Amino acid sequence: DAPDEFRDPLMDTLMTDPVRLPSGTIMDRSIILRHLLNSPTDPFNRQTLTESMLEPVPELKEQIQAWMR
């Protein structure tokens, strides 16, 4: 099983494109984008959230890719 820090906190699946929300939570980009289609909010604190506020986490993405090899 993947380490917890590699798993999306909402869907508990392996992240492939991790992004940091303004709240500091790291999620998979595809999952948070799907959530934003229904509700333009951070799913953990209900603060306003837009796609432009998502910050890529390239170092975590590299760690996940290395773990998958």
Score class of each variant (00 low, 15 high):
residue 67 W to K: 03
residue 45 N to L: 07
residue 61 K to W: 11
residue 39 S to K: 07
residue 14 L to V: 13
residue 3 P to C: 09
residue 20 R to T: 03
residue 34 R to P: 02
residue 60 L to K: 00
residue 23 S to V: 02
residue 25 T to C: 12
residue 57 V to L: 12
residue 50 T to L: 11
residue 29 R to M: 08
residue 22 P to N: 01
residue 69 R to M: 14
residue 22 P to Q: 03
residue 1 D to R: 15
residue 44 F to H: 03
residue 4 D to T: 14
residue 5 E to M: 13
residue 62 E to V: 10
residue 48 T to D: 12
residue 58 P to S: 09
residue 35 H to N: 04
residue 20 R to I: 07
residue 58 P to G: 07
residue 18 P to K: 01
residue 55 E to R: 12
residue 55 E to V: 15
residue 12 D to H: 15
residue 14 L to R: 02
residue 21 L to S: 00
residue 67 W to E: 02
residue 33 L to P: 00
residue 51 E to M: 11
residue 68 M to L: 15
residue 32 I to Q: 00
residue 3 P to K: 06
residue 30 S to Y: 11
residue 5 E to N: 13
residue 44 F to S: 03
residue 54 L to I: 07
residue 38 N to H: 14
residue 47 Q to G: 10
residue 11 M to W: 09
residue 24 G to I: 03
residue 37 L to A: 14
residue 19 V to F: 03
residue 28 D to S: 03
residue 18 P to G: 02
residue 18 P to D: 00
residue 26 I to P: 00
residue 50 T to K: 08
residue 25 T to M: 15
residue 49 L to V: 07
residue 62 E to P: 01
residue 37 L to E: 13
residue 65 Q to G: 08
residue 54 L to A: 01
residue 46 R to K: 15
residue 16 T to L: 14
residue 59 E to C: 10
residue 69 R to C: 12
residue 64 I to K: 00
residue 4 D to P: 15
residue 45 N to Q: 06
residue 47 Q to C: 10
residue 53 M to C: 06
residue 5 E to D: 10
residue 43 P to Q: 02
residue 27 M to A: 05
residue 36 L to S: 00
residue 25 T to G: 06
residue 12 D to V: 06
residue 2 A to N: 06
residue 51 E to V: 13
residue 68 M to A: 11
residue 60 L to Q: 01
residue 27 M to D: 03
residue 5 E to Y: 13
residue 47 Q to N: 10
residue 36 L to E: 00
residue 24 G to V: 03
residue 41 T to D: 07
residue 69 R to W: 11
residue 5 E to G: 10
residue 64 I to E: 01
residue 66 A to K: 13
residue 37 L to K: 14
residue 53 M to Q: 11
residue 1 D to V: 14
residue 21 L to M: 05
residue 21 L to F: 04
residue 68 M to N: 08
residue 2 A to H: 08
residue 68 M to E: 08
residue 15 M to S: 02
residue 11 M to T: 14
residue 29 R to V: 06
residue 36 L to F: 06
residue 24 G to S: 04
residue 4 D to Y: 14
residue 4 D to H: 15
residue 8 D to S: 03
residue 5 E to F: 12
residue 58 P to M: 09
residue 7 R to Y: 12
residue 32 I to F: 02
residue 50 T to W: 10
residue 69 R to A: 14
residue 5 E to A: 12
residue 22 P to A: 04
residue 34 R to A: 15
residue 66 A to V: 11
residue 61 K to T: 06
residue 60 L to W: 03
residue 40 P to N: 12
residue 15 M to C: 07
residue 33 L to Q: 08
residue 57 V to H: 07
residue 38 N to G: 11
residue 51 E to N: 07
residue 67 W to P: 02
residue 62 E to D: 11
residue 12 D to Q: 14
residue 49 L to A: 01
residue 53 M to V: 06
residue 28 D to E: 11
residue 56 P to G: 09
residue 29 R to N: 05
residue 21 L to C: 07
residue 67 W to A: 03
residue 23 S to F: 04
residue 46 R to Y: 14
residue 21 L to D: 01
residue 5 E to R: 14
residue 25 T to Y: 15
residue 43 P to S: 02
residue 63 Q to N: 07
residue 38 N to Y: 14
residue 65 Q to H: 13
residue 6 F to Q: 01
residue 24 G to C: 07
residue 2 A to L: 13
residue 64 I to H: 00
residue 7 R to S: 04
residue 28 D to T: 01
residue 59 E to F: 10
residue 44 F to N: 03
residue 43 P to V: 02
residue 19 V to M: 10
residue 49 L to S: 02
residue 10 L to V: 09
residue 65 Q to Y: 12
residue 53 M to S: 06
residue 4 D to I: 15
residue 7 R to N: 05
residue 3 P to V: 05
residue 52 S to Q: 13
residue 1 D to E: 14
residue 62 E to Q: 13
residue 42 D to S: 03
residue 35 H to F: 11
residue 62 E to C: 12
residue 53 M to G: 05
residue 21 L to P: 01
residue 18 P to W: 06
residue 63 Q to K: 15
residue 42 D to M: 01
residue 37 L to Y: 11
residue 38 N to R: 12
residue 17 D to S: 05
residue 39 S to G: 07
residue 11 M to S: 14
residue 25 T to R: 14
residue 23 S to E: 01
residue 59 E to H: 12
residue 44 F to T: 05
residue 30 S to F: 11
residue 19 V to T: 04
residue 33 L to T: 09
residue 56 P to C: 09
residue 35 H to D: 01
residue 1 D to P: 12
residue 38 N to L: 14
residue 57 V to F: 08
residue 36 L to C: 06
residue 2 A to R: 05
residue 41 T to H: 09
residue 47 Q to P: 03
residue 65 Q to S: 10
residue 66 A to W: 08
residue 5 E to L: 12
residue 20 R to Y: 05
residue 46 R to V: 07
residue 63 Q to M: 13
residue 46 R to S: 15
residue 5 E to T: 11
residue 42 D to R: 09
residue 63 Q to I: 11
residue 3 P to H: 05
residue 30 S to V: 11
residue 50 T to M: 10
residue 56 P to M: 07
residue 45 N to V: 06
residue 61 K to I: 07
residue 64 I to D: 01
residue 49 L to N: 00
residue 43 P to T: 02
residue 33 L to C: 11
residue 46 R to Q: 15
residue 16 T to H: 10
residue 58 P to R: 09
residue 20 R to P: 01
residue 55 E to W: 07
residue 23 S to T: 06
residue 59 E to R: 11
residue 57 V to D: 07
residue 36 L to D: 01
residue 39 S to Y: 09
residue 6 F to A: 01
residue 6 F to R: 02
residue 32 I to S: 00
residue 50 T to Q: 10
residue 65 Q to F: 13
residue 32 I to A: 05
residue 11 M to N: 11
residue 34 R to Q: 14
residue 68 M to K: 09
residue 66 A to I: 12
residue 13 T to P: 01
residue 45 N to I: 06
residue 45 N to M: 06
residue 53 M to T: 03
residue 38 N to T: 15
residue 58 P to V: 10
residue 20 R to H: 04
residue 16 T to W: 12
residue 14 L to K: 01
residue 19 V to L: 04
residue 20 R to D: 00
residue 2 A to I: 15
residue 20 R to G: 01
residue 1 D to T: 14
residue 62 E to N: 11
residue 29 R to S: 07
residue 25 T to K: 14
residue 30 S to K: 13
residue 12 D to G: 15
residue 48 T to N: 12
residue 48 T to M: 14
residue 43 P to Y: 04
residue 39 S to L: 07
residue 41 T to F: 13
residue 19 V to I: 06
residue 48 T to K: 13
residue 60 L to F: 06
residue 29 R to K: 13
residue 55 E to G: 05
residue 29 R to W: 08
